[in-house]
Amino acid sequence: MTTALITGSTAGIGAAFARRLAADGHNLVLVARDTKRLTEQATELHDRHGIEAEVLTADLATDDGIDAVAARLRNRTNPVDLLINNAGFGNKGRYLDVPMSDELRMIKVHIEAVLRLTSAATGAMRERGRGGVVNVASVAAFVPRGTYGASKAWVVQFTQGVARDLAGSGVRLMALCPGFVRTEFHQRAGMGTDNIPNWMWLDADKLVAAALADLDRGKTLSVPDPRYKALTGLAKVAPHGLLGGVTSKTGRKYGPQ
């Protein structure tokens, strides 16, 4: 029985990964900031699926939090076979409207934590000759949309670069780029969602199923929906000046309210 560690496991995409992996018989290490929610989640998954669910309370916006999770990933006695770097958040407001402390916190969680945890996990995995890492990015990685999009673009480039460097080692890496998913993400950021068309919303459980299938196929980039595949394809060929204007208007229409 293998073990998967999921950051941001108590809600949204992270919770969907936890449900699916537990149903498939994987033991879990559940990571989030809220101990009560983690404990409730661990108990539910253990009772429903008979797997072992370990709780690790950590704030990935702090060095102590990142250090704690990295130490667990380096544990050779009870190894982690699959890392899901899912923790993340959005900031409401345009550039210069968002406090610098919030921008830096985003960089800490979206970039530094992903770098350090991926390094801790893949170092141990390479020694064993097997393992996988899914770094959750966003379709925002492909359009110019401030710190959030820039941080997710870094996740995509970093993940695909490391995947090439570790090719042949038995360690697989994949960047997952979802679009709008019905989770707590927007609510926590204080963003309105009433103006987002129904066709743009994705189901978290279906998204996770598609992502794990892509990981099994050896993909290093997963955009798990035909609608968003088409949109990201257009983003790659559209002129940057045009794309910047369109995404700015789209951000005002479908973004934070």
Rank of each mutant, 00 (worst) to 15 (best):
T3C: 03
I6P: 00
S9M: 07
T10C: 07
A11N: 12
I13A: 00
G14T: 10
A16W: 07
L30Y: 01
R33V: 08
K36S: 11
H46D: 13
D47G: 04
D47K: 12
A53F: 07
A53N: 06
A61T: 13
D63E: 15
V69Y: 01
V69T: 13
N85E: 13
N85W: 11
N91C: 05
K92N: 08
K92E: 11
K92W: 02
G93F: 11
M100V: 14
D102F: 00
R105F: 00
V109A: 01
A113Y: 04
T118I: 05
T122W: 00
E127K: 09
R130A: 11
G131P: 02
V134G: 00
S138N: 10
S138P: 07
P144D: 12
S151E: 10
K152W: 03
Q157D: 14
F158M: 15
G161V: 09
G161D: 14
V162W: 08
A163V: 12
R164D: 12
L166V: 10
G170R: 04
R172M: 09
L173W: 08
L173R: 02
L176W: 02
L176D: 07
L176K: 00
T183M: 06
T183R: 01
H186M: 10
A189K: 06
G190A: 04
D194A: 14
N195S: 14
N198T: 14
M200G: 01
M200P: 02
W201P: 01
L202M: 15
D203P: 02
K206R: 14
K206H: 07
L207R: 02
L207M: 04
V208P: 00
A210H: 09
A211D: 05
L212T: 09
G218V: 14
K219I: 08
S222T: 09
V223L: 06
P224M: 09
P226E: 15
L231W: 06
L231G: 04
G233V: 10
A238V: 14
A238Q: 10
P239H: 07
G241W: 13
L242K: 02
L242M: 15
